[in-house]
C-alpha cells in the first residue's frame, strides 16, 4: 500500500467474487496502479439484490443495504464497488437514509437489534466513476498506467441501468447518450464503437432473468444484434450481473433461439487489467462462457 493512495472499503457483492473472481482480482490490482487502495469490507453480504429484495419488501432492502454501509462507517471509509446492482442498493439506500429522517429512524430501529446504527458518515462510489474523476484518478492517469494498449480492438460499451438511472437522483448527467466510459475505453488504446440503443437494459434486472428467462434473453438478444451489426470485438460493462447476462446469456440464446454471436464480454476492470499487462490467467478469463480467445488474439 503506497502512502498517498486513496483508500476505499471494497464492497464485493456476489457475482464478482463468486462467479467472475477475475473482476475482483483485477479491480484490486488495476486500482492500485492508478492510486486507489481497495481494502476488504469484512462481513459484507449481498447488497441485497435490488430487483429481488426491492420487489418483495423495500423495508428489508433498506435494512440489509444499510447494514453493509454501516460496516464501512465502522471502518471510517467510503465504499467503492464494481457492480451496478450493488450501486443501486448501496448508493441509493445510503443516499435515501441520509436524506429521509423517517426512513433512517425506521431502519435504525431494526439495526439496533444487531447493535448497529446508520449514521450517514460515508459515501458510496462505483470504481468506474472514480477512474473517470480527475480529482481521484482521471482518464489521463488511466492512459498512463497502460503497458499493453488494446490497439485495434473495437469495443461496445454497455453502461447498464442502475449506475446512472434514474438520472435525476444521480450525478452522471446525460443518461441518454453518455460517453464517459467510452473515454475510459479509449484510454486503453481501444476503439469504442457506437451501436443502436446503447442504453437499453441487458434484460436481466428486476428479477426477470429468474422469472422469465426467455423474455430476459430476448432483450439481451436485441442488444447482441445491435452490437453485431456494427462489428465489435468485445463488449465491456461495469456490472458483473450484466456480464453474466451477456456472457452466459449468449449460450442460452443459442440454446433457446439458435442465434450465435460469440462476442466476448469483459468487465472494464478485466480490460484495464489486460491493458496494464495482466495475463488472461491472472484474470481467470477461462471462466467466461464466451471464448475470449479471439479478442485476446487481436490485442496480444
Amino acid at each position: 500500500m503506497s502512502g498517498n493512495n486513496h483508500q476505499y472499503a471494497f464492497f464485493l457483492g456476489c457475482i464478482a467474487p463468486n462467479r467472475y473472481p477475475g473482476i475482483e482480482a483485477a479491480a484490486i490490482r488495476t486500482s492500485k496502479n492508478v492510486g486507489i487502495d481497495l481494502l476488504p469490507l469484512k462481513g459484507a453480504s449481498c447488497c441485497p439484490a435490488p430487483g429481488a429484495f426491492g420487489s418483495i419488501d423495500l423495508n428489508v432492502w433498506y435494512a440489509m443495504a444499510a447494514r453493509n454501509v454501516v460496516l464501512a462507517e465502522q471502518m471510517g471509509m467510503d465504499i467503492a464497488l464494481v457492480c451496478n446492482g450493488c450501486y443501486k442498493s448501496i448508493w441509493e439506500v445510503n443516499h435515501k437514509l441520509k436524506h429521509n429522517d423517517e426512513l433512517r429512524d425506521g431502519v435504525n430501529e431494526v439495526l439496533k437489534e444487531i447493535d448497529m446504527e446508520f449514521k450517514g458518515t460515508v459515501d458510496v462510489w462505483h470504481l468506474a466513476e472514480l477512474y473517470y474523476d480527475p480529482e481521484i484518478v482521471g482518464v489521463k492517469k488511466i492512459a498512463d498506467s497502460i503497458t499493453r494498449p488494446l490497439t485495434g480492438a473495437k469495443i461496445a460499451v454497455h453502461y447498464g441501468c442502475h449506475l446512472m438511472k434514474p438520472g435525476k437522483e444521480r450525478h452522471f448527467g446525460d443518461t441518454e447518450n453518455p460517453m464517459w466510459i467510452e473515454e475510459l475505453v479509449a484510454a486503453l488504446g481501444a476503439e469504442p464503437v457506437q451501436y443502436r440503443n446503447k442504453m437499453q437494459c441487458c434484460g436481466a434486472g428486476g428479477g426477470v432473468r429468474g422469472y422469465d428467462l426467455a423474455h430476459a434473453l430476448d432483450i439481451t438478444n436485441e442488444k447482441m444484434i445491435n452490437m453485431q451489426d456494427v462489428g465489435v470485438d468485445a463488449v465491456t460493462e461495469v456490472c458483473p450481473f450484466c456480464q453474466l447476462q451477456f456472457d452466459r446469456g449468449q449460450i442460452e440464446i443459442k440454446e433457446k433461439f439458435g442465434a450465435e454471436y460469440g462476442i466476448p464480454v469483459l468487465h472494464y476492470n478485466e480490460l484495464l487489467g489486460l491493458a496494464q499487462g495482466m495475463s488472461p490467467d491472472e484474470l481467470a478469463l477461462d471462466l467466461h462462457a464466451i471464448d475470449v480467445e479471439p479478442f485476446l488474439k487481436k490485442i496480444l
Binding site: 453480504s45 449481498c46 471462466l287
Partner: peptide, 26 residues
Amino acid sequence: GHGVPNNDANRAARKKLGLEEEPETT
C-alpha cells in the same frame, strides 16, 4: 449472506488467482 453464493469451481479459480477461496464477505 449471498444471493449468488460461492461454489467449489469458483473456489478453485479464486485460489488460482491468488485470492482466498472465500471472499472477505459473510
